[in-house]
Simulated assay, not measured.
Amino acid sequence: MSAIEYNKLTDLSGVEQAAMLLVSMGEEGAAKVLAHMNSQSVQSVSQVMARLSNVKQSDAELVLLRLFEDYRGQAGIARASRTYLQRTLDSALGDKLAKSLLDSIYGDEVKTLVQRLEWVEPQLLARQIAPEHPQLQAVLLGLLPPEAASLVLQRLPQDSHDELLVRIAQLGELDREVIEELKELVDRCLAVANERSHTRVTGVSQVAGILNRFDGDRGQLMEMLKLHDDRLAAEVELNMFDFIILGRQNDEVLHALLQEVPQDVLALALKGIENDLKRKLTEALPKRMAQALETQIAALGQVTLSRAEAARSEVMKIARQMMDAGAFELQLYEEQVVE
């Protein structure tokens, strides 16, 4: 509540504020409240109620907001669910006034809920809302940020675009039934997105790790993956940029890469790796540099695994940057060749 609004309320006595509140509640609600008051209080507030005329909704809302701010601090109303308060206030105040008050207390809950879908992949979101009624699709798109809504719209059937845009343009105040349906739809979308995200990321990383350590024909396996799903195979390849793949690069690639890696980072990266891989990397260096590196590795003593892994990640980051710049091509797996 702003200072101006608060000052406006302080011009009214407690009895006047109570009278405005009771008038706003209607006959049935006011009668229930008056039944809990003593005779003197009933008489006092009734006299003021009788003198009231043309109570503005904005003034009534100020009184209600003040009441709830006081009550919330004393009775823990902030922890009550919006659904519970909606039913309670609807009964006492009527739907329109209750909604206005709740929006003041909680903000626009529905819009905030829908905005949680921003991070959901547009293709997945479009697939989830496609079977729904166009009006519900329009409500969801109308509450999403424009950038996210545009990406989702592009993935819905093209012949539905004009109808959805018209429905979005005509949106106004939402009925409660629509809000409840929207909440259920958002919950379903989030549940599917969370499930897909966890399974997909873990699965792709697992496949990449398996292929990196597979002694058989990795190239043939990758070709089979591409036949099933090109996009999935590309994600697997991206996740195969693991330090272990340096063991299958030729000396020319390794020499170019290791020349660009700071020696202290390389020394940390080589701590605790398999002897064959360590030998492969050090043999790609000039003999004097390899000897200096061995001395530096020994001088490090014990290091935490996290430090060693961070150094390996740094090496692979440099490798990826050099490959993207065209310095060399890293071999993720042995591809088939023809004469």
Rank of each mutant, 00 (worst) to 15 (best):
M37A: 08
D242T: 15
L293H: 01
M322S: 02
F328H: 06
S205L: 00
S58N: 09
M224E: 15
T282R: 01
I77T: 04
L67P: 09
R188F: 10
Q135R: 04
E69R: 13
H198I: 10
Q86N: 06
E294D: 11
A3F: 15
P134L: 08
A292R: 11
D162K: 10
T199R: 07
R188K: 12
V192T: 12
P145Q: 13
L285Q: 03
S81Y: 06
E252R: 13
L171P: 02
R188Y: 15
S150T: 13
I297F: 07
L300A: 05
L22A: 07
D90K: 09
V253M: 05
S81F: 10
G209C: 09
M20E: 02
P122D: 02
Q302D: 15
P286C: 08
L258Y: 04
M222F: 08
G26A: 11
Y84I: 10
R307V: 10
E339R: 00
Y6C: 02
D162L: 11
V23I: 15
Q137M: 12
V15S: 06
S58P: 00
Y333R: 08
A208H: 00
K271N: 04
L156H: 03
S91D: 07
I210N: 02
D70K: 08
G301F: 07
E118D: 12
K111Q: 14
M240L: 12
I273W: 03
Q57S: 08
G209I: 00
L182F: 13
M25P: 03
D229R: 01
A308M: 07
E173H: 07
L164Q: 04
R51H: 09
V139A: 02
L285C: 01
S313R: 08
A233S: 13
K8E: 12
V303I: 15
R279G: 06
Q74R: 15
T295A: 15
S58I: 00
K280C: 01
K317M: 13
L185M: 09
L277V: 01
E5T: 06
L270E: 00
V192W: 02
R248E: 03
A233H: 05
D70Q: 13
V253T: 11
L257M: 11
P146W: 04
D264R: 08
L140K: 10
S104F: 14
P131V: 14
L62H: 08
E195N: 10
